[in-house]
Computed example of a mutant assay.
Amino acid sequence: MSLRKLFMACILTVSIGGLFLSSVQAEPKDVKLSDEQIEEMKGLQKEAIEKEKQIIEKYVEYGVFTKEKAQKIIQHLEKKYEKLEENNFIPKWDHKHHMKRDKEAE
């Protein structure tokens, strides 16, 4: 009886996993936000970056990060924001980038 329960649990897990994987699809490439939507996203992204900067500053205060490390992280956040702004606040999730990094690690 225990083996049957284990088998059913495995089947259920695979089924649920398959549902999630099938729902992940490529983003449409021709999506454009309206000016109003761009302004809204711009405000939200700025708020998020400012909050992240506050968190990083707290980590420096608590001794978790050095000032140099914090500055590097903040520069990365600012570059990320600039990239979003260049793309009219439509994120570009390029999986090739991750593959490149994986190859460099070999």
Rank of each mutant, 00 (worst) to 15 (best):
M8N: 09
K42C: 02
V14N: 04
K42S: 11
K42H: 14
K72V: 10
G17S: 04
Q45A: 05
K72S: 13
Y81T: 06
T13R: 03
F65N: 00
L77G: 00
E39M: 07
F7P: 00
I55S: 08
K72L: 14
T13V: 09
E82W: 05
L21A: 10
S2H: 15
H76V: 12
H76K: 15
M1Y: 10
L84P: 00
A9G: 04
K80H: 14
I73V: 07
L21P: 00
S15R: 07
I73F: 10
S22E: 07
T13K: 01
K103L: 15
M8Q: 06
L77I: 04
E78L: 14
G43I: 03
E85M: 07
C10G: 14
A9N: 06
W93A: 11
Q54F: 05
H95W: 04
K83S: 09
L6F: 11
E52I: 03
E36F: 07
K69R: 14
E40R: 10
E47N: 13
N87I: 01
K29L: 14
D94M: 01
E27G: 07
K79V: 10
H97T: 15
T66I: 03
E47P: 01
D94A: 02
D35Y: 10
E27F: 07
K32Y: 05
I56P: 01
V31H: 02
Y59F: 11
K46N: 13
K69Y: 07
W93I: 09
T66V: 05
E39I: 03
K92W: 06
P91K: 04
E36T: 10
L19Y: 15
K79H: 12
G63E: 03
E85I: 03
V60T: 03
I55D: 09
I16G: 06
F20G: 04
A48L: 12
Q54C: 08
F89T: 04
I11F: 14
L19Q: 12
S34R: 02
E57F: 06
S34T: 15
M8S: 07
V31M: 03
L21V: 13
W93K: 12
L19N: 12
H97V: 15
K103R: 15
V60H: 03
A105Y: 02
Y62A: 11
M99Y: 07
Q71W: 02
I49A: 06
W93E: 07
L44H: 11
L12Y: 08
E27P: 01
I49S: 02
F65S: 02
E27S: 14
G63S: 06
E36V: 08
R4D: 04
L12Q: 12
E86V: 08
L77N: 05
E36S: 09
N87L: 02
L44P: 02
I73E: 13
V64H: 04
E82N: 09
K53C: 03
G17C: 06
K53H: 08
W93S: 07
E39W: 00
L33I: 12
F20C: 01
Q45Y: 11
K67D: 08
K72N: 11
W93G: 01
K80T: 12
M1F: 13
K67N: 06
Q75D: 15
